[in-house]
């Protein structure tokens, strides 16, 4: 009996070991096989908020910092509206209507009005992104858990190389809404997490009311960032060696005001579908950049930043990727000859 039990344990161990070995050996084909799985899962993720109304409390922790906000969301299939009211730090309320974002700063009586292209690209973005996502990440089903009193499915999106970070994602079982997201380093340590601490699904959130609040800018000074679309090539820059999985997404020139003509800066964004890297090129000014170059390597939660001087320019890379990925970008980005 005793020996029989021992054999059973051995068999089980062998099976588990064999299973793990098989998984390791077949990683590339496994990722291909699960490609449709990732696509389906991502589409469900994107679809979830389109027809939902909910309100809750959202908490973000990065490093030693914790921020929280009160969230109202409503989607009617075509339009989505959101209100995010900060509960920590500087008082501010952010409204979103599809890709239109308005931030109220009551202390300074300023409203910042922006159009965020990245919010309006779905589903086109997903079509271009998913190719990279399935080639450079694998989906791993982790089981079930509970977040904010709701049953959740847990999955991991793990990078297949060292150029990106991993994610552990909790989606609400019935709706597919993301209710918790952790960003993980190569060793599985949590760099940053965002989650609902409390969430009321099917809440009565009025789109008309949110719209009225969003559009009422009386007594506030409305300002907008001035972005001009361009390409790295047009600006005389080139990413000499492509970084695996990262494709150029968009490039802007931030236009300076007349009083500071030298202060316009170039921002080019590259993404692998899940992570993104911004490359900033500014004219080098010792008074402004000397210190940045001195502390050229910083990280905050999942976001890292690197700076270096190239001739007359200061190049800065910022992104939710490991620092070594930023280093590759810094080395590859060069003046066009």
């Amino acid at each position: 009996m005793r020996s029989g039990y021992g054999v059973l344990v051995w068999l089980l161990a062998a099976l588990v070991h064999g299973g793990l070995a098989a998984q390791t050996a077949t990683t590339p084909s496994a990722s291909e096989a699960s490609a449709t799985g990732i696509e389906r899962w991502l589409i469900r993720l994107q679809e979830a908020p389109r027809r939902l109304a909910y309100m809750g409390t959202f908490v973000v922790t990065a490093g030693s910092e914790m921020s929280s906000s009160r969230i109202w969301h409503v989607g009617d299939g075509e339009r989505q509206m959101e209100r995010v009211e900060s509960l920590t730090g500087t008082a501010r309320t952010t409204f979103r209507r599809n890709d239109e974002v308005v931030t109220f700063l009551p202390d300074s009586r300023v409203v910042v009005h922006e159009t965020r292209e990245s919010l309006g690209l779905f589903p086109n973005l997903l079509k271009t992104a998913d190719a990279s996502v399935t080639r450079f990440y694998r989906l791993r089903i982790m089981g079930q858990g509970r977040v904010a009193g709701l049953e959740a499915e847990i999955v991991q999106l793990l990078p297949l190389d060292g150029l990106r970070l991993g994610y552990q994602i909790w989606t609400e079982q019935k709706t597919g809404l993301i209710i918790k997201l952790q960003t993980l380093d190569a060793n599985g340590n949590v760099l940053e997490q965002a989650a609902f601490s409390e969430l009321q699904l099917d809440a009565s959130v009025s789109m008309a009311k949110l719209k009225a609040l969003m559009d009422n800018t009386r007594g506030f000074q409305v300002v907008s960032p001035h972005l001009v679309k361009t390409t790295a090539e047009d600006e005389g820059w080139v990413l000499g060696t492509p970084i695996p999985g990262f494709a150029p997404v968009r490039c802007y020139r931030r236009v300076a005001d007349a009083s500071a003509p030298g202060r316009s800066a170039l921002q080019c964004v590259y993404s692998d579908g899940l992570a993104s890297v911004s490359l900033f090129v500014e004219l080098f000014e010792p008074s402004r950049h000397a210190r940045m170059l001195a502390v050229h390597a910083v990280s905050l939660g999942a976001t890292s930043l690197r700076s270096r001087q190239i001739g007359a320019w200061c190049l800065t890379a910022v992104g939710e990727v490991p620092p070594q990925t930023l280093n590759l970008f810094m080395q590859a980005f060069e003046r066009k000859r």
Binding site: S118, L181, V249, V269, A275
Partner: peptide
């Protein structure tokens, strides 16, 4: 203008507006 990823909607947006 970064944050161009599949998780941007909605979690990335909420994260950036909250943090």
């Amino acid at each position: 203008v970064g944050g161009a990823n599949a998780l941007q909607m909605p979690t990335g947006f909420l994260r950036n507006a909250t943090f």
